[in-house]
Design a protein around this nucleic acid. Structure first.
Lengths: 370, 370
DNA sequence: ATGAAAGCGCTAACAA
DNA sequence: TTGTTAGCGCTTTCAT
């Protein structure tokens, strides 16, 4: 095959054919090691040389080849985020926090969804650790343990979001789910409710069980006996909220208030109440969890427990960055202080947002059955 | 430096210390070129050898190093998606379509948001083309042209979503915005409305101007004179929808119907109507655009024009994949047919979704100014 | 069918 | 301060 030769090397055209470090070096009249030094901000380069090289890079539109860089042992400056679908606003919020932090760095974000390669989840995680991301933010609903254990084994850096890890080594960022559930229910109790139902999330998820525990604790502390009939097992979907309330409403002795473990289900419940012609909040109170944007757009606006989703994303991102020693990579490796200290899991506080879906119970005592 | 040697090479431990192609070769008793052949599904490998190597790979948990692969001239199997923030459900929908398609392939998705490196947008795109993504899906609100021209110059593959390109060379996937606007307004006219306002999107965006044109065309075709006062310049945000309707309502002769150029603004308008105690749809009709999930969760449920967001994502992804010659990479390079034919831009149809926010105008003729 | 060897573009010793 | 050089793990000729 006799092609080649007649292509690159017209240094005038601004970034024509993918300049390499060698091209720049040639053009600047230095060795390519020197260019590398400039690119990596090493200190031992004559200011004048540095300027000349910088100028050349600019002119040629030089872009370091990430793969070459990473191959030789450098970093890829990519953090991965492993999520399950992306439909919920919940994830968008977290994502936005992640991007907040990342955009201030030179890291890129690789997005992995778990729907794919479902046949073999474990292998897919193996691929991640062999792939281009240096570390992973994991926002997974079900059993992250299956994924995580493999990562842990290979010492691959990751941070769990909205899920407490199974192992002591896991670092996670979660909201105060127990407290949030407790606060929501306690608020309802304060309002005068005694028959308070809960529509739970998918119980495979820590958040769901923690919120349920909070619910129980609040009832117990108020001396209200626990009625298993008032616990509807949902799955965080709008549909399950709707169906849940419908089921609850057809109980012989229906609740006067419902704590939905997330906003989507609360919205579904709101819909169910409308279907049954039950006025919210006068006949039935509903409290959600999350405070997604949609929560303030419903009618009535949703009373809910705010979970600092974006902040969770931010905190987790900062943590993974620290884990990857970001900040020690620019300088000459000088201040390579050991910032890789043992990291603590973080629990961020929730906040009850009082809006329009909760009020004292109707005076006649129970929600209208019809 | 005398380290090394004493680490890998215990082939029993399943994937301990990052097996390389050489390790596998050794273990399988072949040269690493052969392993490479197996990995890449080349035809010229003895079935028996192939099996042995495959088994070894399995056992050692071998994962090809992406960077090495790409460096040597291969592909990265990464497609990028350039978006502006990720807060809107609108983007989530598109994204979900993209993932639909990608998950059936071995491509990964890199997400870039434009908030970052804002100081120099152009350079940031240069970085993209020098980075690991082989091609780009571009979902940008404002002036994609600035980004795109640079990509076009370097022959970097990209597909525009929800934005018609400026150049004839641009391939894009958009919804029938003009038609959608036309349909919405025509529906309102059919209902009996004559004073129909529009709250536009950000007019820098093609979708906004196309929808406005559709609005105008429908009015004109019905012989309804165009009243500039009924055109409120919004920006696709909920707030602008709210403020827009408020402004429209305080007109001396307010509209009886409003076409909001997207659902978020329609939701904002709904809110404004509530603030002013104007009943929707009996006193005022509202039609949105998009049909985001939230649209069917409002009360009343939003009548809107459905835009096949997820499908747009799917189509665009298939196109970029084709552009990257996906499918010709597995076999022996045999069927390397030229599928890189000129590609056509695609316009997907919209659909009017009739729900609860539009009805005939009040008989007294104008929306109640209290 | 398989092995040997030449790089891909870059970083990081090691020399000078 | 700068240049030289040895790989990183892999794909691909070119031999065999």
């Amino acid at each position: 095959m006799a092609h080649s030769q007649a292509r690159s090397k017209q240094k005038s055209a601004p970034a024509r054919d993918k300049a390499t470090i060698v091209d720049v070096a040639e053009a600047a009249g230095v060795s390519y090691a020197t260019v590398s030094r400039v690119v990596n901000n090493k200190s031992n380069v004559a200011p004048e040389t540095r300027d000349r090289v910088l100028a050349m890079m600019q002119e040629m539109g030089y872009q370091a080849n990430l793969h070459a860089r990473r191959l030789v042992g450098g970093r890829s400056n990519v953090v991965g985020m492993l999520v399950h679908g992306f439909s919920s606003q919940y994830l968008s919020e977290i994502f936005s926090g992640v991007q907040d932090v990342l955009s201030a760095t030179d890291f890129d974000l690789m997005l992995y969804t778990t729907r794919r390669r479902t046949s073999d989840a474990l292998r897919s995680v193996d691929m991640l650790s062999g792939g281009l991301a240096e570390g992973l933010l994991i926002v997974l609903p079900h059993h992250p343990e299956r994924y995580v254990s493999s990562l842990r084994e290979r010492g691959y850096p990751y941070i769990l979001i909205d899920h407490k890890g199974a192992s002591k080594d896991d670092v996670s960022v979660v909201a105060a789910n127990w407290q949030g559930g407790y606060d929501a229910v306690q608020y309802l109790i304060q309002l005068g409710h005694r028959r308070i139902a809960i529509i739970t999330g998918n119980m495979e998820m820590d958040s769901a069980s923690d919120r349920l525990e909070g619910y129980r604790a609040a009832l117990q502390q108020a001396g209200i006996p626990h009625d298993p009939n008032l616990v509807y097992l949902g799955d965080y979907s709008e549909t399950s909220g709707l169906e849940g309330l419908l089921a609850l409403l057809s109980l012989p002795n229906p609740p006067t208030a419902v704590f939905a473990s997330n906003d989507m289900m609360a919205l579904g419940a709101l819909e169910a109440a409308r279907m049954r012609n039950i006025a919210v909040p006068s006949q039935l109170s509903i409290v959600g969890f999350d405070d997604i944007p949609m929560a303030s757009l419903s009618y009535p606006r949703l009373t809910t427990v705010r979970q600092p989703l974006a902040e969770m994303g931010r905190v987790a991102t900062r943590m993974i960055l620290r884990r990857l020693n970001w900040g020690e990579r620019k300088g000459d490796g000088e201040n390579a202080v050991a910032s890789n200290l043992m990291m603590q899991s973080v629990v961020l506080p929730t906040e009850l947002i009082v809006r329009g879906t909760a009020a004292p119970p109707p005076t006649n005592g129970s929600a209208g059955s019809r």
